[in-house]
Structures are given as structure tokens and as C-alpha cells.
Amino acid sequence: MTFRPQMTSFTQGIRPLGPLRWRAWDGIVADLWHVEGQEGGGGHYLSPDPRLVVFLDDGAAAVDLSERADFEGARAEVSVLYVPAGRPLWSRITRASGFSHLDLHFDAGGLDRRLAGVPGLDLARPVLMQGQPRLRALAGMLAAECATPARHSLMLDGLTQALLAEVFALPPEEAQAEARGGLTPHQLRSVTAHMRARLDRRVAIAELAAVVGLSESWFAHAFKHSTGQTPHRWQMQMRIARARALLEDRGLSLAAVADATGFADQAHLTRAFRSLTGTTPAAWRRNGPSRPAIPVAALQQK
């Protein structure tokens, strides 16, 4: 079902210079407006959905914006604004001018999905700024796709992600992790998923670091900060947990279990199994329901 933004608006002294152009995809509707405003005109806007507005030309110099009807604390020459859901906005045109702007309306979860895993981001706070050349270029490419569709929505979504990163000034993930001293939640999920898909072998630090685009030394530090364990220890817990599950199948030999979980042979499995559980694989299988429950922290990462 296509998302339809529910905007309540009232305008005066503003007239369109052409038909509205728009594109819709995956919880976003993009509107491209070309209008002419008369001095003293303006409008009031309110939406239950968050939106991002980018002026594509210098028309913003003729528009004052405010969250108050009396325009106390009004901002002039704002060419990029993020308006949270449910926040009112008033505009006032200070001199006759034509201007174009791109509006991106997000559904209730569209913005959250695209910014998931970014720590400390307050989506309830408005952002008003002057557009930088890179930001205006990204918005211009999106506007061109609204005016004359030529590319798949994957391109639109990529440009939107880039716009959001610029508007919210998102630093590289490595910088975010460094500020926290560890991996981001998204990075940790990616790494543990990579490990879980390769329980038949030991995964090298270099390979894990590459999954999240970090250096080996920084990755090892950040991983231990986030989990309290080294990547090797974490992997070993996951492999032993898999071995325990395979031991439930009494038709599998211990050698087969060792091979399926990346150990050189049955003796190698036995040494690693005993170091983590305090018992051998054979004793674990033999004791059945009476064996002790041994928590494995790595299993908590879904």
C-alpha cells in the first residue's frame, strides 16, 4: 500500500508555476514544487509525518520560517529544514520571488528504519540550516528524478540516505564507535551474524574487521569493549554451542561433530569443549537431561 502524507496547510499569496511532480517509494513521498510568492504572502503547515524540505535555488532568501504564528524567533534564509512529526511551521514571504523546493515526507517507520543504529539522534528536534553545495547537489538529483523519472527507486533511496547523513551531520560509523569506545549495535549484529554463518571454521580477525570496515587493531579493541570478550573467545562459544546442539543427534559421531564445527579432530573438540563447559562432549551426550545449563553469551546476539 502506497504511503500518502497527511499534510494540513493554508497558504496565501503563493501560486504554483507548474504541475506538482512527485515520486513515491518504500515509505517516502517526494514532492517537487515550483511556485511564485508575493510579498506578504505565506502559509501554515502541520503534518503527522516527519518531512525534509530543501530549497533548490536562492528563493529561501525571501522566506522567513517560524514555529510560532507571531513569528517570534523567526529564521531567515533557511534553505534546508527537517520538521519532526506534529510540529507546526509558518512561512512568511518578505519580497516577491519565485522559488523551487523538494519535500520528502516519511511514513511513521520510514525515517526510523533508515536511521536505525545511529546513537544519540533526536528525531523530535527540528533542524534548520543553510544548504551546503553537496547537500543541494543531492537534492537536485532527487528533484530531477521527480521531474523526469529515469532511474529505479534504489537510486532515490540512496540519495535520500545521503541527504539524511548530511542534514543530521552523521559521522563515520568508526567515529561513532570510537566515541562510545565500542561497536555500534548494527556493527555488532553484522559481525555476529557473519560468525554464525561460518561456525564450521574459525573466522580470522581480518575477515571480521572487513565486515564492518574497521582496522584489525581497532576492531579487536571495540569488540572487546562491546562484549567483554575477544572475538576468538566469542567465536569459540558459538562453535561450542553449535557442537552441543549437534550432540543431541546420537547418530552423529564425535568426529563428525568436530568437523561440522571447525575443529581439527575429535581431540581438538574435546579440549575446547572441556575448557568452556568443564566436561567432555562424550560426557555431555551421556548425561542427557541431567547436564548443567551453561550460558553462552554469544547466543544472546540475534
Rank of each mutant, 00 (worst) to 15 (best):
G131P: 05
Q38P: 05
V167C: 09
H221D: 15
W22L: 12
I205V: 15
P133K: 04
K302P: 15
M195K: 05
P16S: 10
R151W: 11
A193C: 12
S217W: 14
F55D: 00
Q176L: 15
M141W: 02
G182A: 14
D122A: 10
A137C: 05
E77N: 14
G18N: 06
R198Y: 01
G262Y: 03
Q176R: 14
L246G: 05
W234A: 01
L46W: 04
D200M: 10
G158T: 08
A283W: 11
G181E: 02
T227H: 07
D49C: 15
G182N: 08
D49P: 10
Q301E: 13
H152G: 05
V211K: 03
L104N: 04
R250E: 15
G251R: 11
R23Q: 12
S97K: 07
P289T: 11
R201Y: 00
S217T: 15
D107E: 07
W90N: 02
T279M: 11
G109I: 15
V63A: 01
A74E: 13
L254Y: 11
S226V: 06
A258M: 11
A297L: 10
D259R: 14
A147C: 10
G278C: 10
L17C: 13
F3Y: 04
T230C: 09
Q130S: 08
L65K: 04
A116F: 08
R75T: 10
A197N: 09
Q12E: 13
A62K: 03
G117H: 00
G181T: 03
L81E: 09
Q266V: 07
H268F: 10
G40M: 04
Q301G: 00
L121V: 05
G213A: 04
A62E: 03
L170P: 05
V54C: 02
V203N: 04
G140S: 12
E174I: 10
G251W: 11
L188Q: 12
G120R: 03
F71Y: 08
A24N: 08
T148C: 07
D122L: 07
A210Y: 04
R87Q: 14
R134D: 13
A264G: 13
F273I: 06
P149R: 10
I28W: 14
G182E: 12
V35Q: 06
S79A: 10
E174V: 09
L269G: 03
V127G: 05
L115G: 02
L142V: 06
D57A: 10
M1D: 08
P289Q: 09
D49T: 15
E207I: 04
F223E: 01
R285Y: 06
Q12H: 15
R75K: 07
G228V: 00
F106P: 07
D200K: 09
P50I: 06
R114L: 10
W234L: 00
A60L: 04
T8W: 03
A298W: 07
P50V: 01
F263W: 07
S100T: 14
L20Q: 12
Q301C: 14
R189K: 14
V212D: 00
V53Q: 06
R51H: 12
H221V: 14
T2K: 13
M236S: 12
I93A: 01
A293P: 11
V54G: 01
G73F: 08
R196C: 02
R114C: 08
N287P: 05
G27I: 03
N287E: 15
